[in-house]
Amino acid sequence: MSEFSLACPAPLAERERVLMAHGGGGRLMRELIERLFAPRFSPEHETDAALLALGAKRLAFTTDSFVVSPPFFPGGDIGSLAVHGTVNDLAMMGAEPVALSAAFILEEGLELDVLRRVADSMAAAARAAGVRIVTGDTKVVERGRADQLYITTSGVGVLIHDGELAPWRVAEGDEIVLSGDIGRHGMAVMSAREGLAFEPEILSDSAPLHREALGLLRHGIRVHCMRDLTRGGLASAVIEIARAGKADIELEESRIPVREDVRAACELLGLDPLYVANEGRFVAFVAEGDGGRAAALLPGGTVIGRVKKPGAGAVTLRSVIGATRMLDLLSGEQLPRIC
């Protein structure tokens, strides 16, 4: 008998390839960052953007790639998303976005009209966000080597405060404020991708968040940490902050707004809205006593939970019937169920 039985359930070779789950915002992606990238590069903290001090000015610097398929979906497109995503990463650091770069990877054969529409949408999104796209790059790859177009945007912003917004600043008693209802972007893209027609159509929540986020700081809210909700949804964002900040977090399910159409679509597909993607929502961890005021400053703001510190990074959810359960990162993206 050879040592390598064919029945071996998980040969190592399988693990040595990139899987979709490595980009899904869950545990496998964490693993990739922690084991492959972090030891080779020098990220200082686990935040949405890096802080750079240039003379007296403090800057935030970030980058993000966009590969959404299809490029146009209800409520947005890959262009507006590429602007909002990077603007939001800067905003989460408490920085006023100043300038973006945009790099395009285009598939041979892409209709120029598609590119024109995407560029128009980027320009409009940048204008609306008050940020300039100042430099860029274009590469073309052979047909079949990419899916229409990919965009990478990088951005710099100027910090409007003297402190640092990061998970380590999260403190005992902090209130967690959610800026609006969750799950819209993920369901909008899924409906466009899979041709699922929800009636009425669910629109993506894709939007720039810097006005809302910086508004909290400008109104004197004692903000300790902010995070925009992206791929892994609300649950993943909160879990990552709890772990990085060595805090325990309690969330109240009944206080987390999910629109009825989003909830219905999630029920149908067996998805948990807590893990569905957003592109225009964030959570702010604010000092005890500031939660109500912070929520009132945000259009759909609600206090959804509380921090206990020191903690082990555990996130508990009080369910709608008053029982509790733990929230954990998912392996990769959620897959729709059978029945």
């Binding site: 064919l6 029945a7 071996c8 359930p9 998980a10 040969p11 399988e14 390839r17 990139v18 899987l19 979709m20 789950a21 899979e194 699922l196 597909l269 392996s331 897959l335 729709p336 169920r337 059978i338």
Partner: peptide, 29 residues
């Protein structure tokens, strides 16, 4: 296949890992 099935291990691999190695697998609803 339904998405649910894609991560389930067979005797050697699962459908998603097979796709990473070049198999043609589509998730349908």
């Amino acid at each position: 296949s339904f998405g649910d099935m894609l991560r389930v291990p067979g005797s050697r691999t699962d459908l998603l890992s097979a796709r990473a190695r070049g198999a043609r697998v589509a998730a349908v609803y």
